[in-house]
Design a protein around this nucleic acid. Structure first.
Length: 353
DNA sequence: AAGACGGGGTA
DNA sequence: TACCCAGTCTT
């Protein structure tokens, strides 16, 4: 039977809403605070954390975050290094810096209330179209449809689009607008997200339990495993090289310093290391090594994988006197695991000690 | 339009 | 190991 376009949309919306009532995930930022809607500050924080990061990873870190900074004012009064230190292990550190900047703007310009309109949200640092709509829809039940990876995947399968998602963003956006709920936006958005996460999964979707498969072109053509189409990623991952130096003082402390505010791991603490280079033969000793070249002792090397290149680092170690490095910060050896160092730096320390 | 930007989870 | 994730910003 051929359903008209309109009734297909209506059926799917109502199916997802019903499915959501029985199957919604219990997530910490969803706790209702006002009339079945969540705390907007919680949604604001969770949406920053969830950018390119899985729900499972965010769950624990979100609770820690809210415990430390329960309100927007608590957050807005903190320093960038405090937030970056917390963000260790989550990656994409510009999110942390933007989250703090945005909170300061909201405190100043919006009396500490998370904005409930698109124009005020979209100008905030770190908030793009997706996050603005997610906050509007989830925290304020506004009629919008944000397009995240889950919802995009559901739509390309429902409509059997045989192009990489990147190529058809504008079509998906138009399509998603016909799936906006007037009254139950909050539930429909999160319903799609949960459905994508539990049933319409990236690999091996659970079509057996899918309650909208009769309206799914990918399912009918048995293309659910090939849609979404992957864009060709035949280019080799770049490789870069570095050397890192563990300077260890008489108080069992390790020397650390802050990175520049631009580029990889911006403004994060680091173990001293040489500038990362493509050509291993072009490595240049960092200034801090200077006259210690004879003292440093090779401890091993690590291979660390970032999203767009791999980094091979040889790790060296030297015992030093604390008062020879007056300008630098030190970290107790036993504290490094809980510290705000990026993960790659923690791996470097593990090789040396 | 394409690349930069982390790190943990999963099959 | 390769791929994926409640994306955004810069070039």
């Amino acid at each position: 039977m051929n359903l008209s376009k309109k009734s297909k949309e209506i059926l799917i919306k109502s199916d997802i809403l019903n499915w959501y009532k029985k199957n919604k995930r219990d997530l910490p930022w969803r706790k209702a605070s006002r009339k079945s809607l969540p705390n907007p500050y919680h949604i604001f924080v969770s949406e920053f954390m969830l950018q390119q990061t899985t729900v499972g990873t965010v769950k624990k870190r979100f609770n820690e975050f809210i415990k430390k900074w329960p309100s927007l004012d608590d957050l807005a009064s903190k320093s960038e290094s405090t937030i970056l230190n917390f963000w260790s292990g989550l990656g994409y550190y510009s999110r942390a810096r933007n989250l703090l900047k945005a909170s300061k703007i909201i405190k100043k310009k919006h009396a500490s209330k998370i904005p409930d309109n698109y124009n005020d949200l979209i100008i905030l640092p770190g908030i793009g179209e997706y996050t603005a709509k997610a906050i509007l829809g989830i925290a304020y039940n506004k009629s919008v449809m944000p397009l995240d990876a889950n919802i995009e995947r559901i739509f390309v399968r429902l409509y059997g689009f045989k192009s990489p998602i990147l190529k058809i963003k504008s079509e998906l956006k138009i399509l998603s607008n016909s799936y906006i709920s007037k009254k139950f936006s909050n539930q429909l958005i999160q319903g799609f997200m949960d459905f994508g996460s539990i049933i319409c999964t990236p690999r091996n979707p659970n079509c057996i339990d899918c309650i909208i498969k009769n309206n799914c072109i990918a399912f009918k053509k048995n293309l659910q495993k090939t849609i979404p189409i992957k864009s060709k990623s035949n280019q080799l991952k770049k490789k870069k090289y570095s050397r890192a130096y563990i300077f260890y003082n008489e108080n069992n402390e390790i020397l650390v310093r802050r990175r520049s505010s631009k580029g990889m791991l911006a403004s994060m603490l680091e173990i001293p290391n040489d500038r990362w280079v493509i050509d291993k033969n072009k490595l240049v000793y960092d200034k801090i090594v200077q006259n210690l070249k004879k003292k440093i002792q090779y401890k091993g090397s690590i291979e660390y994988s970032f999203s767009h290149f791999d980094l091979e680092t040889e790790v060296f170690f030297a015992n030093v006197k604390k008062n020879h490095f007056l300008k630098y910060k030190w970290m107790k050896k036993n504290n490094f695991k809980k510290s705000g160092l990026p993960t790659v730096m923690k791996k470097i320390i593990e090789v040396a000690i």
